[in-house]
Design a protein around this nucleic acid. Structure first.
Length: 913
RNA sequence: GGGUUGGUGGUCUAGUCUGGUUAUGACACCUCCUUGACAUGGAGGAGGCCGGCAGUUCAAAUCUGCCCCAACCCA
């Protein structure tokens, strides 16, 4: 598609240049791109709200910006299609919609790309300048991405876009930092932090993940240096012997009787010779190894806890690039891996290594580069979050979660937070902290809000001397923000959040948007992105940024396996769109319940294609049966009123379903009603009522409504048909003539005997079945048919569509002999009333040991009960009980004794002669 | 290791929160049919006892417990 797209425009294809018309078959290839171009060119989806607009009539989506330097994948396609269903429905239903788009090019992926493309190194540039290069390089990728997104036909407002690297967004990021700082929500602290030695930066807790790796357990003997116990030594087990130079203590569990004698003694570290105390602590895992463990600064999070709880010294044996420090003595300069082997060898030579065996265990690694993390003490910026956990939880509770179960995930995430959010990163590129430090007293000097964005590395601080100590030399902060610190601000970016100098307050350009109505997101990434966004925006605005969040599942391959490059099962949107219409792809995308993973399925795409064809062909038929805009007759005939009443029901139900993001249910409901009821039943009947004004009106009303109802799902084909048949294009203004800017249909309040309609459809099916079974063509004439059942007002329709020469509606039940076939109990009543007696009652009926007392026969013909309705006796006597007639129904086996053939349906009896 | 979700005819799935006894639809399969748009259409048929076990109940796909399997999140 990417290669076809550009030259499609100059194909000069006749169909493309043609005015919309129903001539011939539907040609999605020409039609879809034509409308995509026009929608964008003519700004059909432009958001033109004003700040005073009632927020309730504005529907705004906070779309998370994708990384644009990569390629469009099925996740993008699926996610944006779901958003588009909501956007298109809301635009028709409730007025103004903002469906914006963001390009995320503030990240390592874009930086690497820029370096490759321009053959430069970011180190050779000033930060600001390098970002300028990034913007230039990414512009091309953005254009390509935009093009591909537009080929999906989503109703994004392409005038409302932003890039996460642009100065306006940098300003918002820095404003966010200053605001939280002034609110006392941020602090800079020297503390142990999770560190990636490959990237040489601190990372936050959520950026690491577990990875199963092969390793060795090493049993190492430690000598006891003090005199208080009989033993000379004890053994610890460790996977990281290179950490023994960093060992600061040894721990024993208080319940560990075998090793209690060690507590209070001093251990000597082999090879290195330094002595450390042996302390008891209940965080020791007694099950592991000998039950005695060493504490190093730092091997893991437990070490950090011990370091803090027992006020242990800091021994740093590993530096920021995972190289051994001078504390490691002879091993200085080795990498941790080299040192591990060397130390193990030396331990063995000196007799301290008692055992060594292979194991496989979970190692915590940086999710970006898969490097095992270290823990280092360094000065970092943190956002304080642990003290507001309750508020964040409450905020999350105020939102609607689709699906609801995702709230549980949020709750567990909040409850499980153990560290404040570390937001500084030691990277060369990124959005800088707007901070300087006084060289003399380390006082923090914040930038002025009016000056943002600033880069302390190239800009001067806003003061000449330190307000604290009067010193005049400052050190710029070199760190940059964690990208999530920026990504978590998208609602503020979209709403135009800024600092207003005049009023000295934060303002929004589009306050009517905030809080946003919807935040969509894939379920894999919500803990990084969505959850942080809730927290950050809540801190800035004291309200939840979203009314609702829509969390979509993943697209799996046809075997329900996760798509991955290594598996080679990735399906590219380009390939799919080359083969199927976008509308068909959208039909498939609507098939899964929101939140569920679902497979890519060609059969659903083909089903979508068939639907487009059906809609097209049905439209052609409607066009031949009725003028485009017939008058509404004073009285609609029963069959036509029936259709419109059914349509009312469908409209009401679909409206609710779409408002609740139940796209799959809405899709199926609409398809069934359109295909089965409208096409198979009503259209067939309408063919025989061509000149009937009642039918003409119903046909056109239903057809217009169907196009409107399908529009959010199938925007291209509905637009084409709408423009061909109904649009008032005299103005030539697509913004007003497009089906996508019309009002969503309302139920019109048609009243009809839906049951009679249902019965009539049953009779028609019965006659079809009869013809089918007798191998007759469906348009074969039937001489005489009698119907016993409530089909008031539908007799003509039945007669016409089934080609019945003579149709009689019987007042009385036809001549039949009946015999009881079965008795159906209404268990919902019988159960609670008779309890365990039900078993006996069932047995009695089964064995025929019952009688029905019909003496006080209540049934009479005047009640209008149809022929198939079971006869009701007053009392069923069985198992010593008497059941009233509302507790059971008698199924009758009928035998027709008159002339002709009898067919029974649920609620009618049909006799063919 | 903890948590979440799911396991329904060959495939994908509705129904499960609010238990009621013939379990929904689509695709695939088989049979038949050119009805004034659509044979890429229409009519009909076969196919499941709802992951397993136990329990609660008059009644369980639906509630409870345990187990198995899968995915995801967290550690």
């Amino acid at each position: 598609m990417s290669t076809d797209a550009p030259e499609q425009a100059d194909d000069g294809d006749a169909a493309r240049d043609q005015e919309p018309s129903l001539e011939g078959g539907y040609d999605p290839e020409a039609v879809e791109s034509r409308w995509q171009d026009r929608w964008v060119d003519e700004g059909v989806y432009a958001y033109d709200g004003d700040p005073d607009q009632d927020p309730n009539t504005t529907y705004a989506i906070d779309t998370p910006p994708p990384t644009v330097s990569g390629s469009l994948h099925m996740g993008h396609l699926y996610g944006s299609t779901l958003q588009d269903f909501a956007a298109r429905f809301q635009r028709m239903h409730d007025g103004d919609v903002l469906f914006p788009f963001g390009y995320d090019d503030n990240g390592i992926a874009s930086e690497r790309l820029t370096e490759q493309e321009l053959d430069i190194r970011h180190q050779d540039y000033e930060r600001r300048e390098f970002q300028e290069r990034c913007r230039e390089v990414c512009t091309e990728y953005e254009a390509e991405f935009t093009d591909k997104m537009q080929n999906l036909g989503t109703s994004i407002d392409w005038d409302n876009t932003y890039k996460t690297i642009e100065p306006r967004v940098q300003r918002i990021s820095q404003l966010s930092f200053l605001d939280l700082y002034e609110k006392g929500r941020e602090y800079r602290k020297k503390a142990p932090a999770i560190w990636c030695p490959e990237c040489e930066t601190a990372i936050s807790q959520v950026e690491m993940e577990d990875d199963e790796r092969g390793s060795h357990f090493n049993d190492i003997a430690f000598e006891i240096a003090s005199e208080g116990t009989d033993r000379d030594e004890f053994v610890i087990s460790t996977t990281r012997p290179e950490l023994i130079p960093a060992c600061v203590s040894v721990f024993v569990h208080p319940d560990d009787e075998d090793n209690q004698d060690l507590v209070g003694e001093t251990a000597r570290i082999p090879i290195f010779g330094h002595e450390v105390p042996i302390i008891e602590d209940d965080r020791v895992d007694m099950e592991k190894g000998s039950g005695v463990v060493m504490c190093c600064t730092f091997g893991d999070q437990n070490d950090i806890e011990w370091y803090q709880a027992h006020d242990l010294p800091l021994r740093v044996a590993i530096d920021e690039s995972a190289t051994m420090t001078d504390l490691a003595g002879d091993y200085e300069g080795m990498s941790t891996v080299e040192a591990r082997e060397a130390i193990v060898e030396d331990l063995e030579d000196e007799g301290y290594l008692r055992d060594r065996w292979e194991i496989s265990h979970a190692v915590q690694v940086h999710e970006r580069c898969d490097t095992a993390v270290e823990y280092r003490v360094s000065k970092q910026w943190y956002v304080e979050i642990l003290d507001h956990k309750d508020e964040y939880l409450e905020a999350g509770r105020e939102m609607d979660w689709y699906p609801e179960k995702m709230f549980t995930r949020y709750r567990h995430w909040i409850e499980g937070l153990e560290w404040d959010w570390l937001i500084s990163r030691q990277r060369d590129s990124g959005i800088p902290f707007p901070v300087w430090y006084c060289e003399a007293c380390d006082n923090e000097i914040m930038a002025e809000k009016g000056d943002l964005p600033v880069d302390p590395l190239s800009d001067e601080p806003p003061v000449d001397v330190c307000p604290e100590c009067g010193h005049d030399e400052f050190e710029p902060e070199e760190d940059v923000f964690d990208t999530w610190a920026t990504s978590s601000l998208t609602p503020l970016i979209n709403a135009g959040w800024d600092w207003d100098e005049a009023s000295e307050a934060f303002t929004m350009d589009k306050p009517e948007l905030y809080p946003f109505d919807l935040r969509p997101q894939g379920h894999d990434i919500i803990s990084f992105w969505l959850f942080h966004t809730i927290v950050k925006c809540y801190e800035h605005t004291s309200e939840v940024p979203f009314d609702a969040t829509l969390i979509n599942g993943h697209v799996l391959d046809e075997n329900r396996e996760k798509m991955s490059k290594s598996r080679g099962n990735v399906v590219a949107p380009d390939e799919v769109l080359a083969e199927y219409p976008v509308d068909a792809v959208r039909f498939w995308a609507a098939s899964a319940a929101v939140g569920d993973d679902f497979p890519y399925q060609e059969k659903d795409l083909r089903a979508g294609e068939k639907l487009l064809r059906k809609l097209w062909n049905a439209s052609k038929l409607v066009d031949t049966l009725a003028p485009a805009d017939p008058e509404e007759p004073d009285d609609l005939e029963a069959i036509d009123r029936w259709l419109l009443a059914e349509l009312d029901d469908a409209v009401a139900e679909l409206t609710d379903q779409l408002a609740e993001y139940e796209f799959a249910k809405a899709r199926d409901r609409l398809r069934t009603f359109f295909w089965n009821t409208f096409c198979d039943d009503y259209l067939e009947i309408a063919k025989g009522r061509e000149d009937n004004p009642s039918t003409q009106y119903a046909l056109r009303t239903a057809h217009r409504t169907f196009l409107e109802l399908w529009a959010p799902f199938l925007p291209h084909v509905t637009e084409e048909i709408w423009q061909a048949v109904y649009a008032d294009d005299s103005t030539g203004d697509l913004e007003t003539s497009s089906i996508h800017t019309r009002d969503w249909p309302d139920p019109q309040g048609y009243d009809a005997d839906l049951e009679a309609g249902e019965t009539a459809m049953e009779v028609i099916s019965a006659l079809r079945r009869y013809k089918s079974e007798n191998q007759l063509p469906l348009n074969a004439d039937l001489e005489s048919v009698a119907v016993y059942g409530a089909v008031d007002g539908f007799a003509d329709a039945i007669q016409n569509v089934m080609h019945v020469e003579e149709l009689t509606v019987l007042e009385d039940q036809p001549e039949i002999t009946t015999e009881v076939a079965a008795i159906d109990l209404d268990y919902s009543q019988v159960g609670p009333q008779y309890g365990e007696k039900v078993g006996e009652i069932d047995a009695g009926i089964e064995s025929g040991e019952y009688e029905i007392d019909e003496d006080r026969e209540a049934r009479s013909a005047s009640e209008g009960s149809s022929g198939d309705e079971p006869r009701e006796g007053n009392v069923l006597r069985v198992a010593g009980e008497e059941l009233e007639d509302d507790l059971f129904e008698v199924e009758l086996e009928r035998t027709y004794s008159g002339a002709g053939e009898m067919i029974e349906t649920e609620t009618a009896v049909v006799i063919l002669e």
